[in-house]
């Protein structure tokens, strides 16, 4: 029943590899401006925003740089900066 391995798949991060490589603009977080409204967490399509001890952590390994977090932030605490 080798076929079962091809038919069935298990959850894993990074099924498309480290999608951080897709990024043209990088979200830079400013803790001082952050009002902890969680909008970035709620709307990040990639689920790579985490809020740990009242600080936003962005997983740059996977962040595709779409810029939604920056757009939805009411406090302008996330700025999109061009990658080098």
């Amino acid at each position: 029943m080798e076929w079962l391995k091809t038919l069935i798949s298990r959850p894993s991060k990074g099924v498309s590899g480290k999608t951080g490589y897709w990024r043209t603009f990088k979200p830079i977080y400013d803790r001082d401006k952050c009002v902890l409204c969680y909008e970035c967490y709620v709307y990040c399509p990639e689920n790579c925003v985490e809020i740990v001890e009242k600080v936003v952590k962005i997983d740059y390994d996977f962040c595709k740089g779409c810029g939604i977090c920056s757009e939805v932030c009411p406090a302008n605490a996330i700025e999109m900066v061009k990658e080098d």
Binding site: V15, W22, Y43, P45, E46, D61, F62
Partner: peptide
């Protein structure tokens, strides 16, 4: 629910 590093386009509404 949707794990990071998936093939969705940037800004994908389904992913949200």
């Amino acid at each position: 629910v949707l794990l990071p590093g998936n093939p969705s386009c940037q800004g994908c509404p389904h992913a949200i």
